[in-house]
Simulated assay, not measured.
Amino acid sequence: MTPTPPRYSRIAGTGSYLPPNRVTNAALAERLAADGIETSNAWIVERTGIESRHFAEPDVACSDLAVLAAQQALAAADCDPDSLDLIIVATSTPDMVFPSSACIVQRKLGIHGCAAFDVQAVCAGFVYALSVADSMIKSGVASKALVIGSEVFSRLLDFSDRTTCVLFGDGAGAVVLEASDTPGILATELHADGRYVDILCVPGHVSGGNVLGDPLLKMDGPAVFKLAVGVLEEVARAVLEKAGRAASDIDWLIPHQANIRIMQSTAKKLKLAPERLVVTVDHHGNTSAASIPLALDEAVRAGKVRRGDTVMLEGVGGGFTWGAALLDY
């Protein structure tokens, strides 16, 4: 009996979208100053590396950004939306409590019938979603998946807290993942530690038509920084070991774009040259689950990431969640 050949998944196309409203540090400082809160471009850049971010208009939802990024990815992959058998949206800012933003994206793409659901792992969400899609393709459950990270984090920000409101932005990134007879996604690794729920959270929910608790983002910055630096190195090394590769094999490191110091620290620990680190945090800010696919698409379209390159994706977010994916693009 002829053995069944192994089945893999590969990224066939990437896409992204940023709302047109670009908010500079100077503009944000002016907004905060009107409420008596002092900050400056120098203060923000020194601590985070962020110079600007994009905010969606009030009537623009997570699914709106997701569809625009998805359409780019589908075009890049020369993929007919009707051929999709899986849609996963990674988001912490869905259109509504239910149904999922993935189902809304499906409707806006004008298709129906394929599986569609959201993944909620905050800033690690895209890596989680990519890992799920990869597993479903490898197992034969799906053959062609649309994986999206989309966020409107500006809706969760407390503009009286300068330590958090300057960090985040809105946007979406997407990839089309297809079944392949050659390896693309080499290995993934996912983790979570619920003991640290309180250090990064939005502690509110809807009950009886009212918001109970606090619906705005809360973060213990030093605690998040300390944990992030440690787990990102660990998960990167774990996924390399699982794939049978070494850090020297990495052509591009695309981490979650949260803080330039965290990103540079991870690259340094892996002994990667600074020019191998893809950085978009300066002009995107922290777009949570959208940050990795946004950065990937920008690097692909700029001609940095090319076919055959080995790419490490890694993210860490509230939960506390973290994960990594190693792939041959």
Rank of each mutant, 00 (worst) to 15 (best):
R7P: 06
G15I: 12
G15R: 04
S16N: 01
A33L: 13
G36C: 00
A42P: 00
V45C: 09
H54M: 03
F55A: 01
F55M: 05
C62L: 07
A66N: 06
L68I: 12
A76K: 07
A76L: 02
D85W: 05
P94W: 00
M96V: 11
Q106Y: 04
G110M: 03
A116T: 03
A116C: 03
A116S: 13
V119L: 10
L130K: 04
V132I: 15
A133M: 07
S139L: 13
A145D: 01
V147L: 11
G149N: 02
S150A: 15
L157W: 12
F159L: 12
R162D: 03
A172F: 05
T182M: 11
G184I: 04
T188G: 06
C201D: 13
P203C: 00
V206K: 00
G213A: 00
D220T: 09
G221A: 11
L227T: 06
A247D: 14
S248A: 15
S248R: 09
I250R: 11
A267Y: 09
P274Y: 01
S288Y: 05
L294V: 03
R301Y: 02
R307C: 11
G308A: 10
T310L: 13
E314Y: 10
F320I: 10
G323R: 08
L326V: 12
L326I: 14
